[in-house]
Design a protein around this nucleic acid. Structure first.
Lengths: 244, 244
DNA sequence: CAGTGGTCTAGACCACTTA
DNA sequence: AAGTGGTCTAGACCACTGA
């Protein structure tokens, strides 16, 4: 009889080291932008060879949680407009041009979480959330209206911010001011008819097809941080996905 | 003054070996399903250490061109319904269920390539193409109508096939019978209004929003093999994309 | 049991960055 | 010149597969 558990019962050393490092990222011991100790230092610190430490670091770099730069060192990934553009913004112009849209904040309010909001953000009953509505433009033309929802508890004071002070790439704000860096996301894309509000904001006829991107963004611990629903006029833009 | 060229002027050994292996895949020297020689054999054959050969193999496995199985060996990736489902079919039911649709072929015809078809498939003027129209159903409900376009030269005899004999996962056919395996793809997604034909096939009102997925599928040599446009009723299904 | 890929180590050297 | 990550090698051992 073998052991009843089907679990591997074996976890490579480098994977264990990777998990320890992940813990340091999730706990904030290592923060976005930080320079990590060098490979030899980490190796002796964790009691493994440099090659094993390297394999753990490479795995985290593959997940885009770390960035390695030859000659300089290994850094914790920080959100920049570039990262937002190439990693999290998949809407491109039909001719292929790739650029980040401007944002105009239309509203920022706190309120009781709806059941859908609680489910998407994994919040208990009675939680409150902060909702941000934005209209985003490419080449000066409004193409995208979106609602962002986050836990009010996780983002204290966000509801009292000046609308104008919110940065265009808001994940920078999450990570810099609320220590809630975004590590990954899941997007669900569908086609919906424009409602009256969407139509007005985007200058379309009600009922026009819109591309809806429903995104839950996750932290390093894989717990949801933000739920975002974007509705896009996709006559001149499309969502680009490369399958490798 | 440094050398005028900005090119790296340096390419790691394992990358060169990887390129050589890619050549064997692109040329058909290694074909889908084949078992590759063992690491030590490849290493001596290419005149490098086993570690370097391994790094090249790992890189190709990361691109999903090879599959490595401990205890068995390294295989060239072959298309299976599983691969189609998890790697190339991103439409899932709103409740999360993930399954491959049935296909009913509506038409299979050869004709002169339109300018758009020539551009998508990188064909010279005067080329002919084969077009396949399919209606695909999930849970017995038609949700997706699509047109596939391929070069007639690359797929000799395809136009004379029996409609019923085309497999549901057609990439298997491309690779098995025409030695044209699909290695990657680029998808462009937008929302469009249903035309009369789409509406009839999918049981919708004309003008209803449809999710359009425009895909160019590429071979190992990164040249286009198939252009496919799918239009989906996205009321009960959506396109799922995970950003890591 | 032999053969495969997977892990781990140790050490040498290379390319890049900064001072 | 010193320090970083990146490459390359060689060898030992482990986990998995199938005869």
């Amino acid at each position: 009889m073998n052991e009843p558990e089907q679990a591997p019962g074996f976890r490579p050393l480098y994977a264990q080291i990777k998990d320890l490092m992940l813990g340091r990222l999730a706990s904030g011991h290592w923060r976005p932008g930080d320079l990590l100790p060098s490979e030899p230092k980490l190796a002796t610190e964790f009691g493994v060879s440099q090659g094993t430490a390297r394999k753990a670091l490479d795995a985290l770099a593959d997940m885009h949680l770390l960035v390695r730069r030859q000659g300089k060192g290994t850094y914790v990934t920080a959100h920049t407009p570039d990262r937002a553009l190439f990693h999290f913004f998949h809407l491109v112009r039909n001719d292929g041009a790739h650029q980040l849209p401007d944002s105009r904040v239309l509203g920022l309010r706190e309120g009781q979480a709806s059941p859908a909001e609680r489910e998407h953000l994994d919040l208990p009953a009675g939680s409150s959330v902060i909702r941000i509505d934005r209209l985003r433009s490419l080449d000066g033309v409004p193409v995208l209206c979106e609602r962002l929802v986050v836990s009010a508890e996780m983002f204290p004071g966000l509801a009292d911010r000046d609308l104008e002070a919110l940065p265009n790439t808001i994940y920078e704000l999450y990570e810099r001011e609320f220590h809630a860096p975004i590590a990954s996301a899941v997007e669900r894309i569908s086609a919906i008819p424009a409602d009256a509000e969407d139509a007005r904001l985007l200058g379309l006829a009600p009922g026009s097809p819109l591309l809806q991107v429903d995104r839950v963004a996750l932290g390093h611990d894989a717990r949801p941080v933000e739920w975002r629903v974007s509705r896009c006029d996709s006559r001149n833009h499309h969502y680009l996905n490369e399958l490798r």
